[in-house]
């Protein structure tokens, strides 16, 4: 039986809680348009929050675990593992947004415009002139793209951090031992899904990125929820390693 008050264990639980919160924050950065965006009637990528966050996060998990397995002493190289997780996620989300933009620009034929700001905070371009009547903006303006890449980075770091903490714990566990990678990976997927669905309920399906007024309104309560839920997941994860 593991003692929950052991400093190493407490640190692990806290790290899992922080990673869960990072994943939650990441979801807010990713420009998600849901079904309206699929019809080019809202800014963002035309699919659900969970699909995008999980899609990029899981690629981050793959790159992080690959880095973990190819380092000679992985437990002392936390930064490298987190960085490779972040890279994987960023590449994935950037590819998704690039291909989505190609479809919006050359397939649907809409100019990219944000409905939430008058000028793009990064390029300074006017947005409202290019917005079609009766829509909530279309496509992915520069600010959304940048925001999405930041989101991918945070999500990748979050996923990689959970994996790093759990594989460290499980590889020393008597009952898991050699299967540590598989169990840690699957557990990470579980925590990832919980933490990417919670904020998607908060944002209610669509968000443009960090420039969206919704971002500031919903982020604190979503992050708080994710932190509490991830602490619980962390305790559960730590107890698995010990058995009874």
């Amino acid at each position: 039986m593991v003692s929950l008050l052991d400093p190493v264990i407490l640190q692990s639980i806290l790290l899992i809680a922080i990673s869960g919160t990072l994943i939650c924050i990441a979801v807010h950065f990713i420009p998600v348009g849901g079904a309206p965006a699929a019809m080019a009637q809202a800014t963002g990528i035309g699919t659900g929050t969970v699909e995008l966050a999980a899609g990029s996060g899981l690629v981050g998990l793959i790159t992080a675990s690959y880095m973990y397995s190819s380092l000679p002493d992985p437990q002392s190289q936390m930064l490298l593992i987190l960085a490779s997780g972040a890279m994987g996620s960023m590449i994935m989300i950037a590819c998704t947004m690039l291909m989505g933009s190609m479809v919006y620009a050359f397939g649907v034929g809409v100019p990219f415009a944000s409905a939430q700001v008058k000028n793009d905070p990064i390029t300074g371009d006017r947005q409202d002139l290019y917005m079609s009547k009766g829509t909530q903006g279309q496509g992915l303006p520069t600010v959304c793209f940048v925001s999405g890449v930041i989101g991918g980075m945070l999500g990748g770091i979050g996923g990689a951090l959970i994996y790093y903490v759990l594989i460290g714990l499980y590889s020393q566990s008597a009952i898991i031992g050699t299967s540590a990678a598989a169990v840690a990976g699957v557990f990470t997927v579980g925590v990832f899904y919980v933490n990417s669905v919670i904020p998607s309920y908060g944002v209610g399906g669509t968000i443009e990125g960090f420039h969206d007024p919704k971002f500031r309104r919903v982020l604190p309560k979503d992050a708080f929820t994710s932190f509490c839920v991830s602490i619980m997941c962390g305790i559960v994860a730590v107890l698995i390693a010990g058995g009874m």
């Binding site: 849901g34 990832f192 899904y193 919980v194 309920y201």
Partner: peptide, 17 residues
């Protein structure tokens, strides 16, 4: 507001943990 698939995924996330 996020589509039904999200709830199936959170179900499995919680279930697997």
């Amino acid at each position: 507001g996020t589509g039904v698939p999200s709830i199936g995924q959170i179900a499995m996330g919680m279930g697997i943990v």
